[in-house]
Design a protein around this nucleic acid. Structure first.
Lengths: 196, 196, 196, 196
DNA sequence: TATGAATGAGTGTTCATTCAT
DNA sequence: CATGAATGAACACTCATTCAT
């Protein structure tokens, strides 16, 4: 029924996300995806009209949830420092957390492989997410917290956060919270602002 | 003669590097490479025994030059702050500079696609390069310059630098030197150390 | 269902065997095989993972059936002369008979082209078949029937039989039975042994 | 000069014959031939206009020499038994002898791969050679020596002789002369004829 | 004559996708 | 919905051959 169908769809998407992250979109065959799910390669196409559509849905799920969570951060309504810290933590958690990393890593790494027809929808989500960061960083700047230009700081932060997926080992000496704290300390002046 | 031969090889490698960066290794066909060079697809194999070997040589060239330049920084022998700044600038220049970026971007992005047989050679170069960064950051830490743990700071710096290839526009408001300066300022305490 | 599936596989194998015999393994293209079967070249690989596997299966089928038939000769249990005659007839029939010759000729002619990984399985069958000939010829020798050394006689017989595929014309003056009789007469002394 | 040129030609032909025998015509690449000779693949074509021509010359050399030697047997003029024995020995020697086997094995095994344009010349030599065997075997029959039909006996003999290239080990228990004697004994009645 | 670079046709094989059952 | 068979276009790579130097 609908529930089972949805389930199968989700299992396919999970398998696709995992392989897209591990091997990349082009190096992933539909047969490899179908083997994980336990069906034949052709059967995937009852659920998705193409491999590109699987990619789109993986990225769309990731982007949508990222926006939802970022909206929640905004809705929680703390001071700029608190919100920035929450955004850093949020992006790190999504990217490294075992149940979410496949989707988020694909969102970051496989943008290039998207059909141009599929890009506008995702670009919109991306824009929304970016604007939350922008606002937050500008608020930090206005509060005299930020150690450099907000736009540049966003680049530094995203680079530092996204790169973590290449080196971060869960269960190591450094926790994700430690790393988030370090990034906050690097970006913001101490002794200033409400959360200090 | 020797020059011409080298030239063709080099032109193939340049074309391969460009397409590997623009489209990724798997999405790049040998035909596309050969068309840029102006020969037939099969002719490439007079110069390289496989597409994988082209990838290896692109990455090897990049890694080798990176090491040579990093060695030069060490040989120049400034204080820790000077050396760190030089390393940041060096990696940014390689990654963004129009004549080098194809090679360096591939070195960073396509590691996964390397033949396992080809990895040890590159791992050695990588290790050498990393050790120069390690030493420099530890020297900074010993001089009381560094704002956090050297290892973590290396991750932050590499993330921030490598990510620049996704957003940096040459000729824009922000120069590479500006960005290098910002990164230096973020990582190091001001008012401390010989170069201050 | 099962029958159809088997059918396509079998039709591919028949086509492969025919071309391997007529042109040799290397001179046979997968495209030529697929044209006989009436499908596209790539479709063959739904049934066989490589051209080498087709070769193996052709040879394996031939060797297996040869063993089965030779076992039947042994099981029938006649005197040495009778058994030798049956073995000669058997090998001639397989090699010349219109429905079997493709497989057997390939078994003899294309051994060299087999993957080394595929050889052990076939070597075992070959050994079994050879041991039946050995036993039979040694029994003939012990009965005083054989005109020379058993091992050498086996070489003479196999040479004479296998070479027949180059000159024997079905429907000509000489039947396969005639030829088998001639070979028997040449190898064995007359007027000796139970079957005489 | 001419001598050197001839030399190179001969070295190429020797290499080609060896590889054609060891691997078969199709499995032999011009590059493999050229490597043995110590030149580049393209250079072969200053000496032979095609790979097929190399094959033709290998086979032509073999067939010509075989005829020359068979003619000598005839010219020596012994009785039928002596001549038959000499022909058997001759063909065995050519096929197994270390300095000649490459050429003769190719003559037997690669007939199929010849250009149809090249066949008539070789067919003529083949015919000449066959006619010497025919005459000799018919002489044996007329002398009451032959144990069966001359034509069939020729097939048996050629099969037995040619097959020897698959099993004969020089330096083993059985010499080529032993084997020739066995074949003679099998084909001819003893106690009859001048050489007995 | 030999080289080294290139050609061009062809090779075995892959793979996303379709579709009758 | 899933299967199993097939498609068709593309792919990396091979190889006999050519040719300017």
């Amino acid at each position: 029924m609908v529930i089972d169908a949805t389930n199968t769809r989700q299992r396919i998407l999970n398998a696709a996300a995992r392989l897209f992250r591990e091997r990349g979109f082009h190096a992933t065959t539909t047969r490899a995806i179908s083997e994980i799910v336990g069906m034949l390669s052709g059967s995937l196409f009852h659920h998705f009209k193409s491999k590109e559509q699987m990619l789109f849905e993986v990225m769309n799920d990731a982007a949508t949830q990222l926006c939802v969570k970022a909206d929640a951060v905004v809705a929680a309504g703390g001071d700029p420092r608190t919100r920035l810290r929450a955004l850093i933590q949020l992006q790190l958690d999504c990217l490294i957390g075992e149940e979410t990393r496949d989707y988020y890593a694909v969102l970051i790494a496989e943008w290039r492989e998207l059909d141009s027809a599929a890009k506008p929808a995702l670009t919109a989500l991306r824009g929304h997410y970016a604007s939350i960061w922008n606002t937050t960083l500008e608020d930090c700047a206005r509060a005299g917290l930020l150690r450099s230009d907000p736009q540049v700081m966003q680049f530094v932060l995203h680079g530092s956060i996204n790169w973590a997926s290449t080196w971060f080992k869960p269960g190591g000496r450094l926790s994700l919270e430690d790393y988030a704290q370090i990034l906050e300390d690097l970006m913001l002046r101490s002794g200033v602002g409400a959360a200090d």
